[in-house]
Design a protein around this nucleic acid. Sequence first.
DNA 1: CATAATGTCCTAACACATTAGGAGTTGATG
DNA 2: CATCAACTCCTAATGTGTTAGGACATTATG
Lengths: 127, 127
Amino acid sequence: MAKDAKQEGLTKLELKMMQAVWRLGSCTVSDVQEQVEPPLAYTTVQTMLNILERKGKLRRRLQGKAYVYSAVMSEAKALGEAVRDLVDRMFGGSSEELVMSLVKSRQINRKRLAELSERLQRNEEER
Amino acid sequence: MAKDAKQEGLTKLELKMMQAVWRLGSCTVSDVQEQVEPPLAYTTVQTMLNILERKGKLRRRLQGKAYVYSAVMSEAKALGEAVRDLVDRMFGGSSEELVMSLVKSRQINRKRLAELSERLQRNEEER
DNA sequence: CATAATGTCCTAACACATTAGGAGTTGATG
DNA sequence: CATCAACTCCTAATGTGTTAGGACATTATG
């Protein structure tokens, strides 16, 4: 059980970095630097990627003269964890409450939700 | 338009404080201190509440010798904003993607979602 | 009245996020 | 070989979140 990296909780900039890496797949500091908005100094990007590696969110290996970074966790999984975190912290662990909040605050309307739900049901059947 | 308080983004402890205030309604520093877990020094709670007041999330008025704090925004509204924030930052603004992530990561199953959706539809009709 | 209790304000200390500069290494080039 | 470009590592400065102590004011109590 050698898991020292407590997941959960990317900061704003860390998230941007991760999103760049997810988009790019395996990539170097320069690759990320080109992607990231607003522009940041090379060394700033480097620092962030190294921090993320220390935290266990990225892995890296030397390829030629530069390190190549890649994500440890898939974007889908990270999204799932972020949602679970929100649900735990703000909705008392109830994902249904989250969905209801989405409706109540008009971020999704009932009809679209019903359609989406139906679509997902059909997906299940044809598996 | 005198709005200096940029909403969005409660930190972990700030959120706990807000949750205590939402639970309690109008309350004093001591009230919150009793609620909050793990225990914090009186002055720590006081500092946090004052910070939240400075940020425009709480208002306070002197009642007798102590200040009484209350939330500026309802919990429901704050939940809605928190969700919107997550959707914007992680799901490219698509709340449907969020719901799908909920299903994909098995935080809600298709059947429960369908039932919930149906229940919400009925709610709408009988309004 | 002296003092204890309760509360306010100010301030500090520590942690960590964000931003970036500078020194040093290494491979390519004139 | 001297130099340049690309890269790494180390370090620092600034900001803000979290935690709490201490000084001072006001009210209640022996």
